[in-house]
Design a protein around this nucleic acid. Structure first.
Lengths: 224, 224
DNA sequence: CAGTGGTCTAGACCACGTG
DNA sequence: ACGTGGTCTAGACCACTGC
């Protein structure tokens, strides 16, 4: 339960570089190692992650530097739940319904199989503005019975990433008429639909979802 | 110039797991370390990267396993140049032209600045089918003079990632009429436009590009 | 209890950029 | 010549799983 040293160092360095300006050098790994009373390998692990996340960059044989803060890496495909003012409005929730062939296929199911599904549709708002509509299709067997009615837990995609892989496909489309009003969009506006599949480590898909993203309220950005 | 041990181990393990089936356990880190004559930390580094890339997964206190091969991680935002049958058709190339305000802005330039720009537009085909149209806008000062006429080098985005950050924004739009024919699309088809900015470690953007992606030939997939 | 992955240490050598 | 990041070693302890 105790926090690993490299994480503490990571936080320590994070708080130290917040005071610094871009492109300023930080201490060398050996000095950090001495000051923070940890081995150089441990310090490096912390630094590696900060570089990976875009907060620092290295120049070989020269040093390690604070990255430009306006370009810290972001990936907005997954909503960060800690972000401000997220609100969810459940549009629909049901269990065990007639399932479309297209979704059967995404979940590697055939209509011969015995299965029970959960479907949830919700509208996501940020700061009161509609951002996207999400449709979830979840194979019930994979879910802890005690979470089935806790929507915030059940539908928190980040929670599954520890033990699963998330594969997302981005599809250009026109806003479906049934969701245009909820998203406050004219019909026929081009939007991006995300088709996501959550797959266990063992290779079994168990959640399929589609999200219809408001083109201006939900900016999709990927930094690498 | 010699290849690090952890990369050799990575390749070795990669070739070994190709023969294995999904969810099969591989040797423990200690055994690998012994067999491959490397320290456990070095073996772990190789394994870490393979896990990160989705080829393996671990279960704590149990072992390391081959991941489901159909779900190996992919990110198709960046074209892998080694992929099959990529063909580029240059549509336009010029230097020092009147630049749109919108692009000035993306590159943090003002029209007071002195600068010289390179613009290149090309059609990308895979297996003979049009996949996307790319428009590049490059600040000349940042480019090695000797590469200016080597389009394959100049426009290979992957090459810049060593020392720079790539920030991409995905925008739903309708296919621009001027590119509809080249992409073999009807006018008004919804497509995804990618707006990319390449930013040096020091925080200076120096390449801005837009790519117009064929919705069926260029599938955008992101796994995490 | 034996074996696993996760963390950590205190050294070492290398290639290379800058003063 | 010195300091830097990059790699590598040969150990160690821990918490946990499965037998």
């Amino acid at each position: 339960m105790k926090k690993p040293v490299y994480l503490k160092i990571k936080e320590q360095i994070m708080s130290e570089i917040e005071e610094k300006s871009s492109n300023q050098a930080i201490e060398s790994e050996r000095k950090l190692s001495e000051r923070l009373k940890a081995s150089r390998m441990t310090v490096r692990r912390a630094l590696n992650e900060l570089v990976e996340e875009g907060y620092l960059y290295r120049e070989q044989n020269v040093g390690t530097f604070v990255a430009d803060k306006s370009h810290w890496k972001k990936n907005t495909l997954l909503a960060k739940p800690e972000a401000d003012n997220i609100e969810y409005r459940l549009i629909n929730f049901d269990v065990k319904y007639a399932i479309r062939d297209e979704i059967l296929e995404k979940l590697n199911l055939s209509d011969q199989d015995y299965f029970s599904m959960i479907r949830a549709i919700r509208l996501v708002l940020v700061n009161g503005k509609p951002q996207k509509v999400e449709e979830f299709h979840i194979i019930r067997d994979f879910i802890d019975e005690k979470n089935i009615n806790k929507f915030d837990v059940l539908l928190d995609v980040n929670r599954y990433l520890e033990t699963s892989t998330l594969s997302q496909r981005l599809v250009p489309t026109l806003v479906p008429p049934k969701y245009a009003a909820a998203l406050k969009l004219r019909i026929n506006e081009p939007i991006i639909k995300i088709e996501g599949t959550i797959i266990s480590n063992k290779g079994e898909p168990y959640i399929y979802f589609e999200s219809y993203n408001h083109p201006r309220e939900k900016i999709i950005e990927i930094t690498e």
